[in-house]
Design a binder for these strands. Structure first.
Lengths: 211, 211, 211, 211
DNA sequence: GATGAATGAGTGTTCATTCAT
DNA sequence: GATGAATGAACACTCATTCAT
């Protein structure tokens, strides 16, 4: 029964790191990047400031880690068990989109932090760093291209308009989805409002892209 | 021939105020709220810091004034000589919307500052103040309600889908329009890209809302 | 009677700058570079920390300014109204050297700060910066070359040993002079001790270099 | 056959202590006192920070130990198998001094650490502690007195100037020697430069003190 | 009325030292 | 006995705001 070397210390270190990222996510989401002080984050989990610096190179690096987590979460919601090349009919595609939208809405209801973080990233990146602004741009671009891939598949299969500008429409749809999500995340929207907004979005989207 | 009291002083004062707002708009648009220092603004027009404090209560109040101007500009572009109750046919409505979109695109090309400011407002408001976040929300709400009014008129006139959820759709369309505008404003998009994006947006919108 | 533009403000600014440099010189001389906090300097003249940053880019820049002053002072003592090519006999040279040494000793007695600063520079430069270490080295090199010039003149005139290695001896003499000065500056040496030390140094030096 | 208590543990402890002092000497010599972090030293020999605190009361105490070692080394070089009362003629004395100087130069070439440490002590002591400054002063005093003892012996024996101020000259010569050594230690001086400098120093010294 | 020099509170970051494991 | 994770005090620097001139 070989005991791994320093199993406890490592586990505790990783655990503290997670706690820090979690606390940082909350505070950054609540107050934004600039108004968040390292001491706020450290204080929330009852550790000293320097315990954060033992794990992260600085405030910016911590924010990066937080954003990484949030992006992973959003990407997971976006892709889930769905893939661009899955749907073969408009109905199947609509089901797919509804599932993704429902996943979003559910995640939104259960843990608004990830969406508030997304908001913080997309909204404050300019005010922080050129590099962060680039990351935010790269993220939206990636999401837009994923959307475009879905659309392209639909055009190929014939259940979406043949003359659809898939690249431009992918960007537009993506922007719309993010904007709606951010708007809903802004303040506790009631589930009914969310439902109506999602319905309206899907109606706009589907009737629009139908071939 | 009534002479206003202190006419010259007042005019100079008002002129300085305009200069300050103009310079502040530029710097805030370039660098965002947090990275802008009062000294940057004062330096740009060659006055002392305290000349700004003689006219505005503080950085926040100055930003408010700048945002007021920008909002007025955007609202003017949105309403122009158009009004919700003007169009009576789908074609007329489409013409109206295209005119507004063209106005936006032209303004974007000629003076990106107002849109960059809008971006700053919508994107950084969270990181500044609860109150500013509320103002940003109020602004988007007002714009959404204006859009909803257009849609309601179309439904009443019968050239838009009868079952359209005008409130929810107004919000969605509004979010989409802002998101697209902000995305285009992000970095010098070429006119062709802008054109394609606007076309895609309108195509999505119109085919979608048609009754 | 034209009044210069902003004469008072400029004079006050320059005056404050001098006060800061003076206070910084004292504190740096007392406590060395690392143990001196900006607040110590600001506190000594009763101004806020940021008043220092209004005039100097940072702690390092302030130290540079202090060192500049000290170097100027030392160089003035070293050159004074004497020049390498002045003395034509051993007696004249000895008189010249005694005058310089006396100037040093007097300055040492009246204001030990400049020598303590010299000590700080020569002693702490390594612990601060590569660049500062280079400055210190450049300073000692310059002083050594000045000494070598004196020696070379004496060899040419024939009142110093013909086989004198003027470059190496210049470095050695220079090092000896600095070391003695620093040693005397270390703690309030009595005038008698200083006198004896200077005499011993000159005796060593002159009997040694005589041709 | 008495077995010492915990012989292995003690030996290991002593060995670790030596390793620490050795590593500390290297790092202090390379980076000076202030720029050296305890973690640097611990990291160099792959132990935890607290292993150092188990053996030394703190950074200052460790530096003391390092300096003790270095001083012992320098003192050994200075005295070697020579003693103040050994030489009876000027030629014998000159040989003695040359041997010491050669020993220094050789040690300098082979292991610059001890001289760099000496430099660190003499140069940074002010910036650390009053007490350390005192130690440095005590060290230079001791060395100066040793030099004075040599000189006094020479005067007694009659091969040095009868009117030599042995105390003051001892301090001066000592300062010169240290200054030259430190200057040579500053950066890799070539052996030729070192040779010329040593020659010049000895020439200055001997022709100077000859009776 | 306008100026700009001065302020001082606030922040990110470092590092010698301690202590639970 | 050794570890290294955690601490918290200290410090350089920024900038919105004020006030003497």
């Amino acid at each position: 029964m070989p005991t791994p070397v320093q199993p406890r210390a490592e586990r505790m270190r990783a655990q503290l790191r997670d706690e820090i990222v979690q606390a940082a996510a909350e505070v950054f989401a609540e107050r934004g990047y600039h108004r968040t002080a390292i001491a706020d984050i450290a204080g929330r989990i009852g550790v000293g400031n320097s315990s954060i610096y033992a794990q992260f190179a600085g405030k910016r690096a911590l924010f990066d880690a937080v954003i990484d987590d949030a992006m992973r979460g959003v990407m997971a919601l976006l892709s889930a068990d769905n893939a661009p090349a899955t749907a073969d009919t408009l109905e199947a595609y609509e089901g797919q989109v509804r599932r993704i939208a429902t996943g979003f809405a559910t995640a939104l209801g259960e843990d608004p932090t990830v969406l508030r973080l997304l908001r913080t990233l997309l909204v404050e990146s300019d005010g922080v760093d050129e590099e962060l602004a680039d990351r935010a741009a790269a993220f939206t671009d990636a999401a837009a291209q994923m959307t475009s891939a879905y659309l392209r598949h639909g055009v190929t299969r014939g259940y979406l308009r043949a003359d659809l500008d898939v690249d431009a429409t992918g960007r537009v749809v993506n922007a719309m989805v993010f904007a709606v999500a951010l708007d809903l995340a802004r303040q506790g929207a009631t589930p009914e409002e969310a439902e109506r907004t999602v319905d309206a979005t899907l109606a706009l989207f589907f009737t629009g892209v139908r071939g």
